[in-house]
Design a protein around this nucleic acid. Structure first.
Length: 286
DNA sequence: AGATCGCCCTGCTTGC
DNA sequence: TGCAAGCAGGGCGATC
């Protein structure tokens, strides 16, 4: 599933292949793909025709394509299985093709939104004065954003009566961290996922944040090398290909630090993977 | 009002 | 073998 590094790879691909192009036609093939656009697929398409795409932007796992001179943006989220592909116009339709965007130039390529599980989608929104689609104004800056406020993050963390993994996944505090990166960063920081946020010292939270950035940058480095073809993102998960995970998905496999079998615990309708030796559970009531 | 839960969805895997 | 349940998971609306 695409996470922040994968979405950034997609953003770069879009910048290269569709920025500056004018939309000629939009085909919405599945209503769920535009469910965040209340006026529906026909309205979505009609309002895009004739518009020119600006430089794609990203925050966390959201990305958006500004419409030049309009104060509007096409907002996209890939969800679990979404892909944005730049394909030759004559290429056969993908099995899960949901939206097709054609351009009025002679490049011979079109933009396709393909999504098996339909958790993702596209929609059209007005921008805030910051140039952010209004519906994602509540999404915090992500850890790769130069304007991410580390001090504010730490203070918010300390003020929460919550646990560290919940806080990592709270998009209003920090965006772009999903289940995989949360478990990986916690493993690197040797922190148990149920560690109360209020017990994290400033150096400890700074260290954790550093690990979050490290795992994302490592994935970005790998994902960023594999997309110089026509495809914006060959398979929607390129960032994971050559990356070795230390915790996530490694139940019963030896910890890369101490050899203790990694454990999986049900958590918030998901799973948490951790090393029971390196990442000790917090004392009850601590 | 902040924290938590359930739902959306499909295809692969597992188990009886 | 076939069917059913489990699992993956981000985000949002409902609920407590």
């Amino acid at each position: 599933m695409p996470e922040l590094p994968e979405v950034e790879v997609v953003r770069r691909g879009l910048e290269r292949w569709v920025a500056g192009r004018r939309i000629a036609d939009v085909e919405v093939l599945h209503p769920r793909a535009v469910r965040r656009h209340p006026a529906g697929g026909a309205d979505f398409g009609a309002r895009l025709v004739g518009e020119t795409l600006g430089v794609p932007q990203r925050r966390g796992k959201y990305l958006w394509l500004p419409l030049e001179g309009r104060g509007l943006s096409v907002l996209g989220h890939l969800g679990m299985s979404g892909q944005l592909l730049v394909q030759p116009e004559r290429a056969p339709a993908e099995k899960h093709l949901r939206i097709r965007i054609r351009f009025d130039d002679a490049a011979g390529t079109e933009l396709r939104f393909v999504d098996q599980r339909t958790f993702g989608g596209l929609s059209l929104h007005e921008n805030t004065p910051d140039g952010l689609p209004d519906v994602i104004a509540h999404i915090a800056r992500d850890p790769l954003d130069p304007l991410f406020d580390e001090t504010a993050y730490h203070l918010a963390l300390r003020a929460k009566r919550s646990t560290v993994k919940r806080a990592l996944l709270d998009q209003s505090l920090i965006s772009g961290v999903g289940n995989i990166y949360a478990d990986e960063a916690l493993w690197r920081a040797r922190l148990h996922y149920e560690r109360p946020t209020a017990t994290l010292t400033r150096p400890r939270s700074a260290e954790l944040l550093g690990h979050v950035r490290d795992v994302m940058n490592a994935a970005l480095a790998v994902g960023g090398t594999s997309f110089d073809s026509l495809y914006v993102n060959v398979n929607g998960e390129s960032g994971y290909f050559d990356r070795s995970l230390d915790a996530y998905g490694r139940e019963d496999e030896p910890c890369h630090r101490c050899g203790t079998p990694i454990r999986r615990r049900p958590w918030m309708n998901r799973s948490s993977y951790f090393c029971p030796r390196c990442q000790r559970a917090p004392r009850p009531g601590a």
